[in-house]
Computed example of a mutant assay.
Amino acid sequence: MALIQLIKTLRDKEDGCPWDKKQNFDTIAPYTIEEAYEVLDAINSKDHKALKAELGDLLFQIVFHAELASELNLFDFNDVVIGIIKKMIDRHPNIFKNEDNQPEFIEETWEKIKADERRLNNNYKSSLDGIAKALPALTRAEKIQNRAANDGFDWKTSEPVFEKVLEELEEIRTELQQGNQEGIKEEIGDLIFTCVNLARHLKVDPENSLRSANEKFVNRFQLMEEKIKILNKPFKDFSEEEMEKLWSETKNN
């Protein structure tokens, strides 16, 4: 594979690139995460030309990690490929073992196989093992809740979750009245975690939902900035009432 050879050349002890030669798993990891998010940005913006380029950048990161492992005699890129092929075959008995091919069965089987894989791990202690701590917090919260729900720890409807959201809001108010900053921090975390649970019950991806809300705010704020430029008046000189009026006008555009 030409890409593997390219990375070997870049990391050659004598003639390689000084920057590439000094990299290790830890130093290259932030770039791997960055490239994964750039793939997501290209997908969200439906920019297929950018997607092709970003997938290449992400592939470079994957092969780079595999080459680092190969240098340490841990595994190589071929081992990575063989491993993922075996895993996907094992997780698709509907295709490779002629089992039920209905969507409901496929999803249920997929989760069962993943759970069995975790239990076969020598370090297995809990159903929540293996959920990456480096995941975005909303995504990790959803995965934690899904695992717990698969074990039967869940509400049957969304109504108790609505009540829990209101309960968490009141607990924040109580901590605020007591001036307990650590308590406020903890209760806001509980509120966000509960909101993720509500999103899960309502079949909404919380990460995508918040991402959309971020973009909506950015678009509206930029429209408001344009209005303020026309008025030729600094932000700080607007009253709260004037700001609210401008924001409402922007929302109605």
Rank of each mutant, 00 (worst) to 15 (best):
C195G: 04
K216A: 11
R140L: 06
E142I: 05
N219E: 01
G183A: 01
P160N: 01
K112P: 01
D116N: 08
L135D: 08
E111C: 05
A132M: 11
K185G: 13
E175W: 12
N121H: 10
T194D: 03
D237C: 07
N94M: 09
D116R: 08
K112M: 02
K164R: 09
V218H: 13
D205N: 15
L231G: 05
N123W: 15
F238T: 13
E186N: 10
E104P: 11
I192T: 01
Y124F: 13
I188F: 05
R147G: 01
S127V: 06
T139Y: 09
E207G: 07
I95V: 14
K125Q: 12
A134F: 09
I228Y: 06
L120T: 08
R220L: 14
R147A: 15
E182K: 11
E187N: 08
I131H: 07
N146H: 09
Q178S: 05
R211L: 04
N214S: 12
L128D: 01
F193I: 06
S212V: 00
F235W: 14
E207W: 13
M224D: 05
N146G: 08
Q181P: 00
E167I: 04
F105G: 06
N197L: 10
S212L: 03
K227D: 08
W110K: 14
D205A: 08
R118Q: 15
G152E: 03
A141N: 14
R140A: 07
F235V: 02
S127N: 06
W110Q: 06
T194E: 06
I172Y: 00
A199M: 08
E225K: 14
T109V: 05
D237Q: 07
L191R: 09
G130H: 07
L135S: 10
L135Y: 14
E107K: 15
K112L: 00
R147L: 08
I172L: 00
R140V: 01
F105T: 06
F235M: 05
R140G: 00
T174S: 12
I228H: 11
I113H: 12
A134Q: 15
A137N: 03
D100Y: 07
I113C: 14
V204P: 00
R118K: 13
L166Y: 15
Q178I: 00
S212D: 04
N121G: 04
E175G: 03
S209L: 15
E240I: 04
R173M: 09
K156A: 01
I113G: 04
K97M: 14
